[in-house]
Every structure is written in C-alpha cells, then in structure tokens.
Design a protein around this nucleic acid. Structure first.
Length: 481
RNA sequence: UCCUUCUUAGCUCAGUUGGUUAGAGCAUCUGACUGUUAAUCAGAGGGUCCUAGGUUCAAGUCCUAGAGAGGGAGCCA
C-alpha cells in the first residue's frame, strides 16, 4: 500500500481514468450481493462520495464484514468509468485495508435520515453527515472570506483580550473568571468577596465585545477588525443566541455612519459572493435538503430557495431608512391598524420588537434593511449623538429570517458629550479612563460594527438553528464536549 | 426568564373512552439476488413507555412535581 493517497475531491475533478490510486475515508453505506459490493466512501474533502466497487470473490470474507457504516478504510484500486448512472467514475478495488471498524450495533449514525435534534446530541460525530460536513466546510470558507475581505482593504487583524477587567460595556451578562475557591472565597469586612486576592487582583470576566479595545487600535492603525469568540451569560433560549459565539468587529477611524453602512453592506455581499463562488456543491445540497424539509409547509410559509435568496441579496441594494421613518411605516401598516401586532406601534421612542423588524424585512421591503438614527435612550453610551438631541448614529442591519445580523454605530468622539452620557447611564467613567484617552488625545470621527458570525452562517446555509452552525454549541444548561 | 408543544425500540413516530400479550417504517442481524446508488425481497432479534410521587380493581394513557428537548417571546450579534 505504497500508493500515494489522493483526496476524493481531487480525484473526482481530475480525469484519472485508468490510473491506480489510493483513497482513504469513512464508509457511508455498503450494499451488494455475493459477487459484487458497492461502498460509498467519503473523506470529508467534498460532499460527494466515491463509489468503491468490490469484486467479492477476490476478498477475504471477514475483511468485508468489517466494512460497515462509519468504518475507516484505505482502498487501492483502478479509477474506471462507472457502469452505473449515479456517478461518472468509481474505483475498482484491488486492495482494501480496514483502518478502524465501527460496530454497527453501537455506531449511532445509521445509513438513514436523522433529525437535527438527534445529531445535536451526537455533535462529536455529526461532522460525518452530509449536512454537517457541508455546513462546516462553508463555515471555514466564510471565516477565510472575512480575513480575505479585510486584508484586501488594508484592515489589520487585531486580537483583543478574552479576559477583561472592564464590565462597563453593558452588552450583556458576563461570565466571571476567577481562581478563588468558590466554596470558601476570601471576604471583605462587609461580607462581599475580596477580589484583590483573586488571580488578577480584581474582578474579571470573559469579554462580551472587543469593541472598546478595537477603538484603541483604530485610533492608531486606522482600520482594524477583530474576529474571535465572545461570551454572553444571558439566559437566552432561542434559535439565534449562543453563550459562546464568534463575532467580527471592524473599527475604522475617519468613517462616519454612512461610510460604516457602505462597508457593512459591501462586507456582507462579499461573504455571500464568496460562498456562491466557492461552496456551490455544499449549497446545492443544503438547498435540496431545505426544499425537502419544507415540502409539508404551506406555500406562504416556505422561504425562497437558498441559492436564489443569496443571489437576490447580492444583487439588490439594502434598504436604508431612519428609525423615525420605520415607525411611520409601521404605524400605518396593516397589521398595526388591524391590531395584529402583539406590540402595537403608537408613538416614537419604543424599541422595535422582532415582529416589527420581520414586517419591514419580510413583508414591506422583501430585502435586507439598514435602520439608522435610533432614540438615544434605547442604545449604548458610546454612540454618536445626533444634532437633533434625540437620536444617535446607530445602525442595525436586519436580514430576512435572521433579524439583527449587524449592530453598529458612529462613535461619540466628543469627550464632554461622552462623559455626560456615561454619567446619565450610570457607567463609572473612572474605570474607563483608558477608553476616554482616545477622546482626550487626537480624537476623531470613527465608526464600527459587530457581525455575529453564526447568524451570517444561518443565512448562508439556510439552517434554522444557530446550534447547528457552530461545531460545539454553548447554550444555557449545555456545555457538552 | 416567560408562553407553548413534546418525551414510547438504535432512529422517526402511532398507540382510540384508562382495560389484560405495547405496534409500524427505517436501522441492525440472518438468508436470497452478477451493477447497486434511500438497492430490492424473505425472516429474526430488539422496550426502565423520561424520572419520582399520586388517583384507580386496573396507568404508556389521568393528576402533581422535577429533568430534558422543540417552537415562539424578551435580551442581543
């Protein structure tokens, strides 16, 4: 078995008919009779299986018995044109080695359809299914596209800390990082925990955002982006929230809110185009899968075909409107007049509920929507205060089926306005001195946004649950594997 | 965290008004078949009916509590 191994993806695209090859992979199915067996072999390089043809009398019976679904095998054989109609080429085996058996009585993945819920419980093995291998190949491609996009634009990839001593960002509940004895922590005289004795000598948490540190980088390097894990200890049980997720946060000096929107739209389209250009086989598989899943649904509940949907978003400008315009549209909308909304729109100032966002994106405009200029009361302290005194230069990008995929803003660069706003919102400015230095020394217009990587994955793959687009999801009450 | 639905074979599910031996398809195993591709055909094995209480002559089925899962909402990315 000295033949050099070839990956199935390469074998299938190159015309190797007549040559001898070695392939290694995992058995998806085996079928046949006493004379001939067919093995569908997958090595993860592509969604396509390679058909191995086994002339049964030439092989040891015990060896063939070990070749069951899930087993790892190495095959040497000749590439031949297929007599069957399911594939153009196949490999006629001359030598088979079983690298690792998979007891069919115990191996959880059967050669049949499994529910996503079941596979979620077998997350360590679900990579071996067509659906999940497709999703995770696309995940790789999307991560690569992020770096390619920003690198081409001259942005610098910046690593912001995962352990943070600042708890002022206010983006959500945080996970505490501590080496103190949970059963017997050192106490202050008033009974509170004495964090001065903790590892870092202060209270520390896992980061909820790299934005504040990212701003420091942008105010020197010009344009930076972060791409890393983010942690939120919110008790959120939905199809679009994770306790540990990956976020992309670009931060740009000298960008105003319009530049910020332009960049975000270009970025999202770049990723979609990258998927269409590089992941077509996997997308086609996911699209077919999605169609089958929706067969039972009513026509108006069915979503647009996956690839068509991606092309549509790519080819159309996002709708841009202000919060105030959105409120007007919603106030005069049919569901509001007929009191179909659970939360009726009656005035300016309230936060939009997801039913309102869905109406705008999925009913009114039928395409992604960028909402800007939100009331300052419902947004973060660091957002640029507009001249009307009521709104801030915030932007949320809403995607069909996903909701908010990007949240961003132009940042408040005026020290006095920022400090005043922090006081109003009860944020301790003295702990944020390092952040405020950017406004003290050489302050300038700057902007940035955060993209939830898994939400983008949901959109691109058409998967319905965020737990199925990250290898090992972390959610309330679940940290398996 | 709230609302809601669910938990029966390895998987997906059925199980009537509470009634005596809990079913199907797929998967697995055995056999048949010279080219299958969701292979086909025949047969076999396989059950803590989520857990703990309770009601009842009798509970998979009804009640209470708990655990877990799905969907929706809130929080957000």
């Amino acid at each position: 078995m000295e033949q050099k191994r070839i990956k199935i993806k390469k074998l299938l695209v190159s015309n190797e008919v007549g040559s001898e090859v070695n392939v290694k992979g995992w058995v998806r199915t085996k079928r046949g009779n006493k004379q001939i067996n067919f093995i569908a072999l997958n090595d993860g390089s592509t969604i396509q299986n390679l058909q191995i043809v086994v002339d049964v009398p030439n092989f040891n019976e015990d060896l063939l018995k070990k070749i069951s679904t899930g087993a790892a095998i190495s095959v040497v054989g000749e590439v031949i044109a297929s007599q069957g109609s399911g594939q153009s080429v196949e490999v006629s085996a001359t030598k088979i080695e079983v690298l690792g058996v998979a007891d069919p009585e115990k191996y959880p993945l059967q050669p049949k359809k499994h529910s996503l819920e079941f596979l979620r419980e077998k997350a360590h093995l679900r990579f071996r299914t067509s659906t999940f291998s497709a999703v995770f190949r696309i995940r790789h491609a999307m991560a690569f596209a992020v770096h390619e996009f920003f690198n081409k634009k001259g942005f610098f990839y910046m690593h912001t800390p995962l352990i943070t001593g600042s708890d002022a960002e206010g983006a959500g509940e945080m996970f505490r990082v501590s080496t103190l004895d949970a059963k017997n922590p050192p106490l202050n005289e008033d009974g509170s925990i004495n964090y001065k004795e903790d590892f870092f000598g202060k209270e520390t948490n896992l980061t909820v955002s790299g934005q504040l540190e990212g701003e420091l980088g942008a105010m020197a390097l010009g344009e930076i982006y972060t791409f890393g894990p983010t942690f939120r200890a919110e008790n959120s049980n939905t199809t679009r929230h994770l306790a540990e997720f990956w976020m992309i946060e670009p931060e740009m000096a000298f960008y105003d809110i319009t530049d910020n929107m332009d960049l975000a739209e270009e970025f999202l389209k770049y990723m979609i185009k990258y998927a269409l250009d590089n992941c077509m086989e996997d997308l086609e598989f996911l699209s077919k899968r999605l169609k089958e899943e929706e067969k039972g649904k009513k026509a108006d509940e069915q979503s647009m075909e996956l690839i068509e949907k991606l092309k549509f978003v790519l080819e159309n400008d996002f709708v841009r409107l202000t919060y105030t315009e959105a409120i007007d549209i919603l106030r005069n909308s049919q569901p509001n007049k007929k009191k179909k909304f659970q939360y009726l729109i009656d005035g300016w100032g309230a936060d939009l509920q997801s039913e309102h966002e869905r109406y705008l994106v999925e009913k009114k405009f039928m395409k992604p929507v960028i909402l800007i200029d939100y009331p300052k009361e419902i947004k973060s302290f660091y957002m640029k205060q507009n001249e009307d005194g009521k709104t801030v230069a915030a932007m949320d990008i809403l995607f069909p089926g996903i909701g908010e995929i990007i949240g961003g803003s132009q940042r408040e660069e005026d020290l006095d306005k920022l400090v005043t706003r922090m006081k109003e919102m009860g944020i301790p400015a003295e702990d944020m001195d390092w952040y405020l230095d950017t406004r003290r020394f050489g302050t300038a217009t700057h902007s940035g946004f955060g993209l939830g990587f898994e939400r983008m994955m949901l959109f691109v793959t058409g998967m319905g649950n965020i737990r199925d687009v990250i290898p090992f999801p972390r959610t309330p009450k679940n940290a398996e594997f």
